[in-house]
Amino acid sequence: YGGEEEAFLRKVVTPIYEVIAKEAARSRRGKSKHSQWRNYDDLNEYFWSEDCFQLGWPMRSDAGFFCLPSEQLRFEKIGDGKPAPRDQWPGKVNFVEIRSFWHIFRSFDRMWSFFILCLQAMIIVAWNGSGQPSSIFSSDVFKKVLSVFITAAILKLGQAVLDVILSWKARQSMSFYAKLRYILKVVSAASWVIVLPVTYAYTWENPPGFAQTIKSWFGKSSSSPSLFILAIVIYLSPNMLAAILFLFPFIRRFLERSNYRVVMLVMWWSQPR
């Protein structure tokens, strides 16, 4: 920057500070929509990404980082007199908040799922057999209690769909792989909503209620309880893996450094939303 007095302050620090000040003003003290302004996380994440190299050195004053949405249609004259559009406002980096009461479920989904599944299990135990807690060891009652996994799959599907809806405004700034993970999460959850009820219906010789209807759709062949148990084990395998990685952090650190494609796929799939 030529070694001028306070050059770094005026040509590097000040422009970045002005961007922060403009974005803070656009927030209108938090009243503006979350998708219309960049907060600290967005600005910080920008300098951790490859996009920051678009600033150049010395920094280009027309770089996208210094743009605001209202400035995207402004043009600057170049040498031959033709208008040259400025870089576009980079927008949100990852998460765009959509204000909704559904965040109460999304933020505490494990807690709500636990409460709902426990309530279902207690209702089944109370309304079947003697109503005593020990009646859960009865084969028929235990089979009915296993239906909580179907409810868990439905809640998981709702959570996956909710993740897509509440992250919809961030789709333009998401990477392709992040979008792919969201889509595959929905597809996977929807698949389990189909697989678990079907296999559950075949655990009964004379299935009750809706299980009998499902069995009539797919053919009334002989019952196969082991198939449902196998489906449950496969369904719970990601949760069991997550529990192992939580209890043994050194395993997670080892897997994160691995270059095996299978391990990389598992770690990519297990990333939080």
Score class of each variant (00 low, 15 high):
Arg171Glu: 06
Glu4Met: 13
Arg74Phe: 14
Tyr17Trp: 02
Tyr260Asp: 04
Asp87Val: 10
Arg29Leu: 15
Met240Glu: 00
Ala201Lys: 10
Arg257Gln: 12
Gly81Asn: 08
Ile136Phe: 02
Ala189Leu: 09
Ile16Leu: 05
Lys82Leu: 09
Phe53Thr: 07
Ser113His: 10
Tyr182Cys: 09
Ser27Ile: 14
Ile116Tyr: 01
Ile150Asn: 08
Glu5Thr: 15
Ser270Thr: 04
Phe210His: 05
Ile214Lys: 13
Ile104Asn: 00
Tyr1Ala: 15
Pro15Val: 10
Arg74Ile: 12
Lys179Ala: 14
Val198His: 10
Trp57Met: 11
Ile194Trp: 14
Phe66His: 00
Arg106Lys: 01
Phe114Thr: 07
Ser35Asp: 03
Ser270Gly: 11
Ser237Ala: 11
Ala243Lys: 00
Phe95Arg: 05
Cys52Thr: 09
Asn239Gln: 01
Ile123His: 12
Met240Pro: 05
Arg38Gly: 06
Pro15Phe: 01
Trp204Lys: 00
Phe47Arg: 08
Ser258Met: 01
Trp89Gln: 12
Asp62Asn: 15
Ala170Pro: 14
Arg74Asp: 10
His34Asp: 10
Trp217Ala: 02
Ala170His: 09
Tyr177Thr: 06
Tyr177Ile: 04
Val198Asp: 04
Pro90Phe: 15
Phe101Asp: 01
Thr199Tyr: 06
Trp89Arg: 07
Ser139Gln: 09
Ser216Leu: 05
Ile20Ala: 05
Pro69Leu: 04
Leu180Asn: 04
Val198Glu: 02
Phe101Tyr: 10
Met122Trp: 13
Phe250Cys: 06
Tyr200Met: 14
Val164Ile: 11
Lys215Leu: 06
Asn128Cys: 10
Glu97Cys: 10
Leu43Arg: 03
Ser226His: 12
Tyr182Glu: 03
Ser224Asn: 12
Glu5Arg: 15
Phe65Ala: 00
Pro133Ile: 07
Phe246Thr: 07
Phe218Ile: 03
Lys33Ser: 09
Trp168Arg: 12
Met59Cys: 08
Ser270His: 06
Val12Ile: 15
Val125Ser: 01
Val148Pro: 01
Pro207Met: 08
Ile214Val: 15
Asn259Tyr: 12
Gly158Tyr: 03
Ala189Cys: 02
Val12Met: 12
Ala153Ile: 03
Thr14Tyr: 06
Gln212Trp: 15
Asn128Val: 07
Lys22Ser: 08
Glu45Arg: 09
Trp268Phe: 02
Gln72Ser: 15
Arg171Ile: 03
Ser226Leu: 14
Ser32Gln: 13
Trp168Gln: 11
Asp140Asn: 08
Gly131Cys: 04
Val93Ile: 03
Gly219Trp: 02
Trp37Gly: 04
Ser134Val: 13
Lys77Asn: 09
Arg106Asn: 01
